[in-house]
Every structure is written in structure tokens, then in C-alpha cells.
């Protein structure tokens, strides 16, 4: 296709020959980029979903005891003797940056699939309502929870970046109650667990991972596993949530705020 100068689709192209060139090249041979982007979208989603499981298992150590949570925290800070000594909280900062990178990467790629305008949004919604079809509805759930995480997940990550040295049984609980962030955690819990489990199920279908002899039967089984996982992690998450809120309420008094559990025990935070 050739454009006369004044027919070029937008002004920048008229000035910048290179921009146009790459567009025209696409008419000769399709770019491999969409393939790569699809792959990266899936890989980043997979990494995030697995990370979120490990994350919740770690955080839920509070259900065992305050000491257990302190131990896990120090271990992840790189302490060589987690029962006695703190580690290097700066490591937490690096970890947060790593997760943030994956998070942004995945969000940017996956957001391409969201309805792009009112008409698409309305069409998709009426389609979901009309079909009453499990996988379609779950995609919708994924879209909504994805948007929720885009805001609250980013906020959570930045808060952890800033408070990298204030993680522990007491200080973490303070964020739930004293700093009033409990609604954010509750939203994130449901959003992550629903979104992640559906995402992993979809990944297995999308790439045909566990097809086996009878892929249709496998799909039914995967659906059951998915629900099992969702219920397990939401249950675990709610119990963990309750534990932090309880501590947070107990500690929400002048003189107690800002005092780490380790210090109360007579150790360096």
C-alpha cells in the first residue's frame, strides 16, 4: 500500500519514515511479537500465581504463632539465625521490586484483553448474562479482579517497599487496624485467589498442559481442582486475616503502636 504524502494516516508518519516502515513491513510478513507477548503474559501470570500461593503460606505462619511469623520474616530477610537475629530488610525491597516488575508486565499485557470501550464492555456483559457459561463468567471475574488488583495490588506493593523494615507480627497487624488498611487486604485476598486460580485453570486449557488421553474429562477434573484450591486459599486467607486483625486490635493503644514484637521480647527488631 502506498500513501500520497497528504494521505498518510497521521501526521507523525509523514515526518518519520521509520515509523511507517515498520507498519508496512507487517503487511509483508506478520510480526512475531504477538506470539511473544502471549507467551510472556502467560508466563508472568503463572509466576505471579505461584508466588501468591507461597506468599499466603508464609503470611499464614501467624496462625501457628507470633514467633513463627517472626521467624519466617527474618528468614526471608536473609538472617542466618532467624530465631535470634534480624536479617537485612533491604532484601525485602529488592524482592518487592522484582514482584512489581512481574506485576506490571503481566498487567500491561493482560489489560490488552479487557473491553476497550463502552460498546465492548456492554456486549461482553450481556454475553456473560446470556450464556450463563462457567468459563465465560469466570473470565469476567478475572477481568474485574484484575482491575481491582491493578489499583490495590500496586498500593500494597508500594507500601511494602516503603515499610520493608517494618514487617512482623505486631507491625504488620498495625497496618490492618491502626492504619485502617483492612478493607484493602480483604479485597486483595478475594481478588488474588479468584483471579489466580481461574488463571491457572485457563493456562492449562490455553496451552493444553494436562490434556492426557481424554482432554474433556481432564478439563472437568481441572475445574474441580480449581474450586478446591480457591476454597482452601480463601479459607486460609480469611483465618490469617482474622489473626492479624485480632492482634491489631489488641495493639491499637498509645504506647504499643510502633513497638515491634521482637523488641518487646528483648531482641533487636
Amino acid at each position: 500500500m502506498r500513501y500520497a504524502d497528504d494521505m498518510a494516516p497521521w501526521p507523525a508518519v509523514r515526518r518519520n519514515g521509520d515509523g511507517m516502515k515498520s507498519l508496512l513491513e507487517d503487511q509483508v510478513r506478520k510480526s512475531r511479537m504477538p506470539a511473544r507477548l502471549d507467551f510472556i503474559q502467560s508466563a508472568s501470570g503463572l509466576a505471579l500465581a505461584l508466588f501468591m500461593w507461597v506468599h499466603l503460606l508464609m503470611v499464614s505462619s501467624i496462625l501457628i504463632s507470633k514467633d513463627a511469623m517472626l521467624f519466617v520474616t527474618r528468614m526471608l530477610e536473609g538472617s542466618l539465625n532467624p530465631s535470634e537475629e534480624a536479617g537485612w530488610p533491604i532484601l525485602v525491597r529488592f524482592a518487592v521490586l522484582g514482584v512489581l516488575f512481574l506485576f506490571v508486565l503481566h498487567a500491561v499485557l493482560a489489560m490488552r484483553k479487557l473491553p476497550a470501550n463502552w460498546k465492548q464492555w456492554r456486549t461482553m456483559r450481556s454475553h456473560v448474562k446470556m450464556m450463563k457459561h462457567g468459563d465465560t463468567t469466570q473470565w469476567w471475574v478475572q477481568a474485574i479482579t484484575g482491575i481491582a488488583m491493578f489499583f490495590f495490588g500496586s498500593a500494597h506493593l508500594l507500601i511494602m517497599y516503603a515499610n520493608n523494615d517494618k514487617i512482623g507480627p505486631y507491625l504488620s497487624s498495625e497496618r490492618f487496624v491502626h492504619y485502617g488498611l483492612w478493607p484493602m487486604y480483604l479485597i486483595l485476598l478475594f481478588a488474588v485467589e479468584l483471579h489466580g486460580a481461574v488463571g491457572l485453570y485457563r493456562l492449562s486449557i490455553k496451552w493444553g498442559w494436562f490434556d492426557g488421553k481424554d482432554p474433556r474429562k481432564t478439563r472437568k477434573r481441572l475445574k474441580k481442582v480449581k474450586w478446591g484450591i480457591t476454597v482452601f486459599f480463601i479459607g486460609l486467607g480469611l483465618a490469617t486475616f482474622a489473626a492479624y486483625v485480632k492482634i491489631g486490635i489488641e495493639r491499637n493503644e498509645p504506647g504499643k503502636i510502633g513497638v515491634p514484637y521482637a523488641v518487646e521480647k528483648g531482641q533487636d527488631h
Binding site: S31, P34, A35, K113, M131, W139, R202, I205
Partner: peptide, 21 residues
């Protein structure tokens, strides 16, 4: 790839399985 290789092709499919079902 020339037929399928973009978001109007197979990379646009969101694996909703409406077709399958």
C-alpha cells in the same frame, strides 16, 4: 502464522471455551 499470528488470530482467543461447550 500469516493467517493466525496476531490478536485477531489465535493469540486473541481468551480460552473461554464457549465454542467447545
Amino acid at each position: 502464522y500469516e493467517v493466525l499470528g496476531d490478536d485477531d488470530g489465535v493469540f486473541g482467543c481468551m480460552s473461554l471455551m464457549g465454542c467447545e461447550d
